[in-house]
Design a protein around this nucleic acid. Sequence first.
DNA 1: CTGTTAGCGCGTTCAC
DNA 2: GTGAACGCGCTAACAG
Lengths: 339, 339
Amino acid sequence: MNKKERAAPREVRMADVAKEAGVAPITVSRALSTPDTVAPETRRRIDEAIQRLGYVGNRAAGSLKSRRSNLVVVVIPSVTHHSLASMIQGISEGLAPTGYHLVLATSGDSREEEEKILRAFLAQRPCAAVLHNTVHTDECRRLLLQSGIPVIETGDLPPEPLDVAIGYSNFEAARSMTAHLASRGYRHIAFVYRWAERNERTDERIRGYRAAIAQAGLPSDDGLLFGSDAGVAGGAQTLRRILAERPEVDAVFFTGNDTGAGAILACRREGWAVPQRVAIAGYDDTGLAICLQPTLTTLRIPRHEIGGAVADTILARLAGREVARRQDLGFELCVRESS
Amino acid sequence: MNKKERAAPREVRMADVAKEAGVAPITVSRALSTPDTVAPETRRRIDEAIQRLGYVGNRAAGSLKSRRSNLVVVVIPSVTHHSLASMIQGISEGLAPTGYHLVLATSGDSREEEEKILRAFLAQRPCAAVLHNTVHTDECRRLLLQSGIPVIETGDLPPEPLDVAIGYSNFEAARSMTAHLASRGYRHIAFVYRWAERNERTDERIRGYRAAIAQAGLPSDDGLLFGSDAGVAGGAQTLRRILAERPEVDAVFFTGNDTGAGAILACRREGWAVPQRVAIAGYDDTGLAICLQPTLTTLRIPRHEIGGAVADTILARLAGREVARRQDLGFELCVRESS
DNA sequence: CTGTTAGCGCGTTCAC
DNA sequence: GTGAACGCGCTAACAG
């Protein structure tokens, strides 16, 4: 066994492909990135050479030279929220046919964590950034603006987005649901948010709730705001707590993931008639809502579509097209038996 | 306005930091990647210079030189499955304190799509790959083996993993649940899988189901295998179909996401007593199971822990430590009122 | 503990 | 439609 055989097999480079195909490296580069600018016959020879040699391009080299990668970085609080997973799925599907890839990190709703993640992400020289948060540390804002890449915020629609905001109005959604409950004649409407999620989205929803309460001429009462654990079990437990502490409550608006469904199940178990004893409303229209008894009144937020719009907007921006700075994809009030 | 003012501001490079701190570039590099090998005082000067100049490293350059990136690529069928989202969350949390990032793509259970994605991913020169599939195209296997990076498969525990497999046995899980139902005296046990998910995991589960049926001395009957849409609504609809087509069925094992819960809800609605008229079992123990009436018998799969083990294993391998090629994290049969 | 040297593999720029 | 030359910013290898 001589030295040649023992040496680590050198990586197949673009130059090797070029030699094999009898062209210059740059022609291979063009055949890969802009096939239309290369003669079909040349392209064919290059494709064959790539096949024969098993060539796999090196994006690190390409990114270094071109000063930009094909990575889209995404920072979300958590993947396990069904709503966020839907959005990610939408982005993923939108980017799949393109050459861009999705780099994901979870911040757990901490602005400091977001900043830390972002700093590391920017070292990848991403071509775009997606943030679910709309409130950031000053340093974050500085880093993002300085990077010069498209930045998409998806959590809410702030009046002045950092760059582009795509989503819906948490304020309007919560106001709309609360107004619906008030219009049905409920007088003691409780509002439930997730403990772990006291962020700007929650704040906006509380603002919306208060606005509707005021408009309906009902008394403002912060004792009707309740924190809750997430999930079905959290919702069930919180409903029991609410009715124990404030028996006059006749409607509850659950804004946490699946908590509304949990409340319906708790009512069945306890024998509380819905909506006669207490009306229930949920946030995010998952498949569960229409299978419950009674069916659950919810807000349908177009999470998957938001993801798709994020992908489209990134692609448009990278192609140099103008895009709307604020894209409101709205929401839908799904009134069902529980209210 | 002269030329200098109009020129795009040149990126701050490591060399600039080095000059500012009065050291060589390599020392800056070391201060960032292996701080322990640099004197504290030097490190302090470098940190200050980085602060002052607002330096953000360039991973493309680093990866090019070191021939390896800090990217872990992950290919899963979909993010919207709660089970997969939990696993991703586990990986994400495990990698967060390290310098590694997670690049995600969804393959929709297509091997061809997986190959396409992988080919693009390998151009990033990732430091590790995670695949939920355990069955791949030949080309995929070749690419992965040739890349020389750690490859973790998570969907099942094949006898001969490509590299490392981390997860649980779909066969044993399904066998265990079916055996439980048989031991309770049910004689006509139906098995429900997701239409869209006829993959090797489903096949293993069907094998497990059949093994338990045979061992219990029950007749083999492929007419008891039913495809179903996903989600609560899919499960509800499928249960109705099963009892209409095969009224003798006295137990149904739902292996799709949330379909078992949908079946329980359908029974409540139709007035079918569970488990007297029909017993119901589900797959994956979400919070919903214990909130239903009756509570739902399920299989608890440690999805989040699997994600954590994936992260740990990648880190171990990259640190040059040996790791087990097959890590069985098991499952737990959660017997509740529905069976 | 710190520095010198020498590329990594590709794409931009400009010429033909 | 194709090519030559150069350098992107960083770190491996070795020396001191």
